[in-house]
């Protein structure tokens, strides 16, 4: 394991926050993407059936 010395908390906090923020953004993007995709497919199916 790498030795971080007295700044271990600082470095780990920086990496931790970054990973959290990036993962949060990825999660939001994917979730909304999946939701919109599902909604669009449902709409297309419904209109194909009715129209």
């Amino acid at each position: 394991m790498v030795e971080l010395g007295k700044y271990a908390g600082t470095v780990l906090a920086a990496y931790g926050i970054t990973i959290l923020l990036v993962l949060g953004l990825v999660a939001i993007s994917l979730r909304r993407g999946a939701r919109v995709k599902r909604a669009l497919e449902a709409q297309e199916r419904r209109m194909a059936k009715n129209g």
Partner: peptide, 8 residues
């Protein structure tokens, strides 16, 4: 100078 903080 900056120690391990350089990794940031």
């Amino acid at each position: 100078r900056m120690g391990s903080t350089v990794k940031i």
